[in-house]
Computed example of a mutant assay.
Amino acid sequence: MLDPYPDVRIVLSTSWVIVYRSVLKVAHRLPAGLRARVVGATFHGEMDVSRFREMPRGRQVCADIVRRRPVAWLALDDNGDGWLSWAREHLVLTDPVLGIASPQALARLKAELAGMATHAAH
């Protein structure tokens, strides 16, 4: 899926980074092609764990976007709670069970990636 998009990088937003105390350990559980694209996580060592856990996922991602300031970005999540209005258009809402394997989520992800690639080419 990401092969036509070599510039795509991944920021993990998962409590497993806290559990394993390392984004590298969590990334290691991904297939090699995805693992190589991981550039960080929404949780980092300078953050307060309990405060981070209290934040809805959308707020965690928004805080990371403000910190990293990517030119273009998408978020894949199965929970639409806590997303700020300016960030919601970047959210690809996935199915809680099927993830991006749901036809709607996969179609939206493909369309968004293609749109971003077209925009970057111009």
Score class of each variant (00 low, 15 high):
Leu24Gln: 15
Asp48Gln: 03
Glu112Cys: 11
Gly115Val: 10
Ala120Tyr: 01
Ile65Pro: 06
Leu106Gly: 15
Arg37His: 04
Glu89Tyr: 04
Leu91Thr: 10
Arg108Met: 09
Arg108Val: 13
Gly58Cys: 08
Gly40Ile: 09
Leu12His: 06
Val8Gln: 03
Asp78Leu: 01
Cys62Ser: 14
Ala111Asp: 14
Val17His: 10
Ala117Val: 02
Met1Leu: 15
Val23Glu: 10
Thr42Phe: 01
Ile18Val: 15
Asp64Thr: 14
Met116Val: 12
His44Ala: 08
Leu2Glu: 11
Leu106Cys: 14
Arg37Gly: 02
Leu91His: 13
Leu109Ala: 08
Asp64Gly: 13
Ala72Met: 05
Leu74Asn: 05
Glu54Cys: 13
Pro31Arg: 06
Val66Ser: 06
Asp48Arg: 04
Val39Asn: 06
Met55Leu: 15
Val17Arg: 10
Gly58Pro: 07
Ala32Asn: 07
Ala87Ile: 03
Arg37Ser: 11
Ser13Pro: 01
Ala121Gln: 04
Val71Phe: 05
Ala36Gln: 07
Gly58Thr: 03
Trp83Arg: 12
Leu12Gln: 02
Ser85Arg: 14
Val49Cys: 11
Val17Pro: 01
Ala111Val: 09
Lys110Arg: 14
Ala117Lys: 10
Ile18Gln: 08
Val97Leu: 12
His122Pro: 00
Leu106Asn: 12
Ala87Arg: 07
Arg68Phe: 02
Pro56Gln: 01
Pro31Leu: 02
Asp7Pro: 00
Asp78Lys: 12
Val11Leu: 07
Leu84Arg: 07
Arg67Pro: 03
Leu24Lys: 14
Gly115Glu: 04
Val97Asp: 04
His90Trp: 11
Leu24Phe: 12
Arg59Leu: 14
Asp77Leu: 05
Asp95Ser: 13
Ser15Phe: 08
